[in-house]
Design a protein around this nucleic acid. Structure first.
Lengths: 95, 95
DNA sequence: TCGGTATTTCGCTGAATCCCGAAATTACCC
DNA sequence: GGGTAATTTCGGGATTCAGCGAAATACCGA
């Protein structure tokens, strides 16, 4: 609960989660059918350095909100909808 | 959204919100019928200094999770259930 | 008005977080 | 193997957060 809330207490991370709700709309190079959006596209859209965005993605992944898939040199990120829903429902029950 | 998540990203603050769900059980001196739990009881239970807990309570209040009522020298805090529910529902829709 | 209690504000220190560039890692291609 | 691209890890400096004690504020009762 605490780690999840910490992961959400940053504007850039909230924005990343929002963008990934609709990859095709937010990342024109992505057709939405693949295993997610590659880190470079997210980094570019966030307008921060690669290392900074990589850290944000790692925090979101550790919190369970994102899943990562390595495919060749690229790492694709996508939302873990099941765990996101599980979190919001737990919050509704326990908060 | 961001401010609310920041308010929840601290263990002491989460604990305070939880205690206030059942004042009679967590604060024996409180009969649960009054306008909330006075700051001193929360401070004692949290085991931190008065100034620290006062800051936590202010953050929770600014985020909309708590309401405060001054009665004489005491300030009573209670959960704002409507706004807490509004937040969890917004999170479920938008996260 | 004075003294006492409850709470908040102020000033400060140490810890955590954020952000960056450089270096390391991983994987592709020739 | 050497060169290149994508990503992560490392080491740092800046900002924010958490905590405290002391001082200030608010209120009551004698």
């Amino acid at each position: 609960m605490l780690d999840e809330c910490k992961a959400l207490s940053n504007g850039t991370r909230l924005r990343i989660l929002d963008w990934l709700k609709d990859p095709a709309a937010n990342f024109p190079c992505d057709d939405g059918a693949g295993p997610g959006v590659c880190a470079g596209l997210i980094q570019h859209k966030a307008g921060a350095s690669a290392s900074t965005v990589s850290a944000h993605l790692a925090i979101l992944q550790r919190a369970g909100f994102l899943q990562a898939t390595r495919r060749g040199q690229w790492v694709y990120y996508r939302r873990d909808e099941a765990r996101i829903r599980a979190f919001t429902e737990a919050l509704q029950r326990n908060l």
